[in-house]
Design a binder for these strands. Structure first.
Lengths: 183, 183
DNA sequence: TTTATTACCGACCGGACGGTAACAAAATGA
DNA sequence: TCATTTTGTTACCGTCCGGTCGGTAATAAA
């Protein structure tokens, strides 16, 4: 399972064959079919595991008494954390490879994540700790920044994991513009 | 060519067969091979076209006398524009489907885009219109936000194209945090 | 009229891949 | 100890796909 996740993330779903996964597990393909009904089921299982782990990660750090601003920070930190784990990052899997049923399940997870972030953002609007125009676009921007990390050729740039979430948070909350001239 | 781009973006490279493309062009696969040496060459051609068009787009709007802040805005607007065009957005193509040679070419385009954005950001640091920690992470964040647009199920959310770039720019430059309490 | 060139097609090859049928060896438990 | 379930295996099928081969109309150049 964790091996499948890693392979899907590294080579991509289409380019990871069931034989690849089986070999990685030191078994054979038909044996894989004893445990899973189809390739898609394996993918869906990977996605589900990632989502469950994310829920745990965030439950540990969360605190509803905090401001929206801080609760967004917590979300971003947990999500960056998740996506940095090769094994758990399949929530970003491309839906186009899935059947309609699989697509529906996958979208469900995404929708829950999206709703969580949107709520935090809206809390921030209400308590005055955040200001923005359209919360949906802000959420898309945040997810995009983080999801795209899966496309970095990570080895190349030596950046500490915490640095990334720290700087993403600062980009999201404070932006990079100074209050100086707007020429 | 433009049809190939659209299909690659909609279905993904692996799931677009040469027969699909040929049929879309009302010709046959062998005829495709008269014009291109391989499937990868078609992809590379799509990427190249997108890149060239981006260069034009940005050249029209650019002005080196502007502040770094404004030049970043110009880049973001042009890039959002490009990615919103189904036909020209192949610069975001997943490198993993490519041969080493193709990967090298594709990375070259990406590197040039990245360098352009990095320069604009650094100009902003020097002229005081921008402030940040690591320019590379900022650039990755910006590209991520925008590149991920290709994963939106665009029809669903009715948002005007200009609104997106406008709000992305505001997110990047000003962030969503208020200067208020940081509880 | 002969010779090239351009642009295309039908038919096919070899390999990979998801999935299956039939069978064997462990592990389990009475 | 022996039957049953669990977990594997070998061998194979159908399909799809990138790519190739041999050939052909149509048009232009010599």
């Amino acid at each position: 399972m964790t091996i499948a996740s890693a392979m899907f993330r590294e080579r991509g779903y289409d380019r990871t064959s069931l034989d690849d996964i089986a070999t990685g597990l030191s078994i054979t393909k038909p044996s894989l079919y004893y445990h899973f009904a189809s390739k898609e089921e394996i993918l869906l299982e990977c996605i589900s595991r990632g989502y469950i782990l994310f829920q745990q990660k965030i439950a540990d750090r969360d605190d509803v008494r905090l401001s929206g601003r801080e609760r967004v920070r917590i979300f971003v930190e947990a999500y960056v954390d998740l996506l940095q784990d090769t094994v758990l990052s399949m929530i970003v899997a491309d839906e186009r490879v899935m059947s309609e049923a699989g697509k529906a399940k996958s979208r469900n997870y995404k929708r829950m994540l999206n709703r969580d972030l949107l709520e935090r953002i809206e809390v921030g609007r209400k308590d005055g700790s955040l200001a923005f125009d359209d919360a949906r676009i802000v959420a898309f921007g945040i997810f995009g920044m983080i999801n795209w990390m899966t496309h970095w050729q990570s080895a190349a740039l030596q950046i500490a994991p915490e640095t990334v979430s720290e700087q993403f948070v600062s980009l999201i909350l404070d932006g990079i513009g100074t209050s100086a001239r707007r020429t």
